[in-house]
Amino acid sequence: MRAGKICRWRFAGLVPYGEGRLLQRDLVRRRLAGEIPDTLLLVEHPHVITLGKMARPEHVRRTRPGVEVVETDRGGDVTYHGPGQIVAYPILDLREHRRDVRWYLDRLEEVMIRVVARYGLRGERRPGATGVWVGGAKIGSIGVRVERWITSHGFALNVATDLSYFDLIVPCGLEGVRMTSLEKEVGRAVDPGEVRRGVVEAFGGVFHRVMEEIPG
């Protein structure tokens, strides 16, 4: 087997949103400086509603105690992150892939489609509504930032998410969107570690990278 380019990955556990941003900024800086290869950071966030630059404040319908609301610097409108959701932050140098952000979004969708396929689900794309949909409901959301072709932010896949939290917002600014999760669709409990491994594997396949776990 020919050894390909490497992408390192790490699951950082439950990370507050702001701290996740700091981790990413540091990785972007180091990726830009060429100190590290492509890196995939996986986290889970405590309850948080995040607003992209283009977000309209009225898309936050209401809030609940314990749910932080933050403005952030990714593309897209408003979304929710919380326990039971796999959040993936790829720090890639698109100059080594393709200098095309639309292509990149499509590839992130492909990663999630491959992950849900492992559970017998058919993930679908919708023109004009970036993300992954299963049976008419949205299971995975995307919001990305690119600085000098280095990516940050990424995607969020609902695994065992308490979907009632999405009622607080108009997800992605699209009225009438129904959200779903892997567990809801397969009708049984799903091992989050197994899903994470699925994400890592699919990511390596889609971006043609050998996935290497960062120890510790």
Partner: peptide, 28 residues
């Protein structure tokens, strides 16, 4: 979505100047 410099400001080559948003992507 944002100008990182004001009119009259000095900007270095390769220094971030503005930010744009396309669909789901923000770019500096």
């Amino acid at each position: 979505t944002r100008w990182l410099k004001k009119e009259g400001d000095r900007v270095l080559r390769d220094e971030p100047l503005f930010e744009i948003s396309t669909d789901k992507v923000d770019t500096e």
